[in-house]
Write a protein that binds this DNA or RNA. Structure first.
Length: 579
DNA sequence: GCCGTTTTCGGCCCGACTGTTTTCAGTCG
């Protein structure tokens, strides 16, 4: 039983308890426990098996959760969870997904009107049976009807690159209003999540009304769902929600901190404030005895500083280890990887396979982006649709690379690479004697993605055991919003990468961003080097590196752990794998 | 349900907005 399964069970307990209207703090305890276990870098099963260790030593796990985790490890079952499942009508969860509908209202609808499906709810609204319930009214009834349509039309979360385009449109529209002194985007978008549920905007202005009027005239606006003195919510194309908050300059840092989140980070920061006799809200930091007198708030640095913390990069604000990192005396914050550390891009295609440009054109583009070296990694022959290279063509390409390198006068180096398929039956798509001549070999699964877990895992383990393979590209194959990851045992892949001294890729393409953040945490915890690559098929394709960096930062990857920050000499030495 | 450099009991982050209410509950972030 791995940690994920235990965490999932606790998460579901939290969800079901919440739907039963349980004490919110009890719900949160299960949620915190789930998060603690999901992000723990050692195995719960091993701690249970070790007679000298105690699960209660894991922060967030007390006696009850320790017992339940132990039961899960030893029996694979959690009777309380099964009981809760049987007691909780599935409709409650669906009802709470309607905007404006929480657990309390959902429970009333189910208990008083016997609502068991969204169709029944629509009918009840249309027959005006909802407005007579206590706490409901005609407006609530109408907003539920509207919410039902939104829930049906709402697209799922947007990818970070899609939200980036929306940001640019909003910026363009709002920047024309002089009353706006400053505009920042916050929320999970600023934290750099791979997908985003809604977009938060923060504005400094003395004239909130004119800002809201301006937003109301945004071309992509579909509806205004709320508008108060300082806050406004709209929906844009595909019912995606955008929230606006207008604040005075002296509160901007506190508001930005608050609206950047995450919720877990904010809870942790505010708890810390309480322990120091302080209180923090979106207007600033104040002493508990004089809550109206703010001692910090204009900048995020001031806010964190008032609590004795270093400023924390938004990508790290997930309620993991960032608070303890920021508490370290003397500013000993670990050096998280950043774009300026990147020396190379080790996954890209040319027009020899399915890319659009030549080797030289890709190399020039990489130079222009400040890189010191790249690897050309076209597809191997199995990927016939992309005109994958057979042994003869790949050897010719490598001769060409040798010629280009020989002519280079600026020290820029092109590595002879290949994105070699791991065939459905297991072996690599090119013979060992060919792979042996490469500087850099990526192993990739493109076919047989629906194979059972055991089979697909064994294919990748086989590739990692091949002495010529250096890294596994996009190790789970997911395409965000389009294709789920293959069913692969990433834990086994990570163990094998450790055993054979191999790397795993974080593919920077915003469609992929694979490894996921939690997989990255697990891999880095096991000391597997991560290689962040663009998988560029064109010159513009190289610009996606930043998404990969953001995701790596979210996982707290240090400069050292990212192979693309290394020098050419160090990388080549590493690929030799000599002791 | 968790947790303790005030506490082993009684807290647990905090505020805006809406709608249904005449002072507040529910929802959201």
């Amino acid at each position: 039983m791995d940690n994920t399964l235990i965490a999932d069970a606790f998460e579901e307990m939290a969800e079901l308890l919440e739907l039963q209207g349980e004490n919110p703090f009890r719900v949160r305890a299960y949620r915190n426990g789930a998060k603690a276990i999901r992000e723990l870098d050692e195995s719960i099963a091993e701690i249970v098996a070790d007679g000298l260790r105690d699960l209660k030593d894991v922060p967030g796990i007390g006696q009850t959760l320790a017992d339940k985790a132990k039961a899960l490890v030893e029996t694979g079952k959690l009777p309380q969870l099964e009981k809760l499942r049987s007691e909780t009508p599935p409709i409650l969860h669906r009802l709470t997904r309607i905007p404006g509908m929480g657990v309390k209202k959902a429970l009333v609808l189910h208990r008083e009107l016997g609502i068991n499906s969204l169709d029944e709810l629509r009918k009840a609204c249309e027959e005006h049976r909802v407005r007579d319930l206590k706490g409901f009214g005609a407006k609530t009834e109408a907003s539920i009807l509207a919410g039902l349509s939104i829930a049906e039309a709402a697209s799922q979360r947007l990818r970070i690159d899609q939200v980036e385009r929306l940001e640019h449109r909003l910026r363009e529209h709002l920047s024309k209003l002089p009353a706006i002194k400053r505009l920042e985007f916050a929320g999970s978008y600023r934290r750099g999540k791979d997908t985003i549920g809604d977009l938060d905007m923060l504005v400094i202005s003395d004239d909130p009304n004119s800002v809201m009027d301006r937003l109301a005239s945004f071309g992509g606006l579909v509806s205004i769902t709320a508008r108060g003195d300082t806050k406004m919510s709209i929906r844009v194309d595909d019912q995606f929600q955008v929230d606006l908050r207008v604040v005075p300059a002296e509160s901007f840092g506190a508001a930005l901190q608050y609206f950047t989140g995450s919720k877990e980070h904010n809870v942790a920061v505010r708890s810390l404030a309480r322990k120091q006799g302080l209180t923090l809200n979106e207007y600033g930091v104040a002493k508990l005895e004089t809550p109206d007198v703010y001692i910090a708030g204009a900048s995020e640095e001031d806010v964190y500083g008032a609590l004795g913390l270093n400023w924390i990069a938004p990508e790290l604000r997930e309620g993991r280890k960032e608070i303890s990192w920021a508490t370290q005396a003397g500013g000993a914050f670990p050096q998280i990887v950043e774009q300026s550390h990147i020396t190379c891009d080790l996954h890209m295609h040319t027009h020899a396979s399915d890319g659009l440009f030549s080797i030289e054109e890709m190399a020039m583009a990489a130079r222009a982006r400040g890189l010191k070296f790249i690897a050309i990694t076209d597809h191997s022959q199995r990927v016939s649709m992309a005109r994958g290279l057979n042994p003869q063509r790949v050897l010719m390409q490598w001769e060409e690379i040798d010629r280009i390198n020989a002519q280079a006068t600026d020290g820029f180096r092109i590595l002879k690479g290949i994105e070699c398929d791991i065939l459905e039956s297991g072996p690599m798509d090119l013979p060992d004697e060919v792979l042996a001549q490469a500087d850099w070999v990526l192993g990739s699964v493109h076919y047989g993605q629906k194979q059972p877990r055991e089979q697909i895992t064994q294919r990748v383990l086989g590739a990692l055991a091949n002495p010529h393979v250096d890294a596994i590209a996009h190790p789970t194959g997911r395409l965000l919003g389009q294709r789920p990851p293959y069913d692969i045992d990433l834990g086994a892949v990570i163990d094998s990468a450790v055993q054979h001294g191999k790397a795993l890729e974080l593919n920077a393409n915003p469609m992929r961003l694979d490894l996921s953040e939690l997989h990255l945490i697990a891999a880095a915890g096991a000391s597997v080097p991560i290689t962040i690559n663009t998988d560029a098929h064109s010159i513009d394709g190289m610009d996606v590196m930043r998404y990969g960096i953001i995701q790596a930062r979210r996982a707290g990857l240090l400069r050292e752990q990212v192979l693309n920050t290394w020098s050419l000499e160090r990388l080549l030495k590493w690929t030799q794998r000599s002791p």
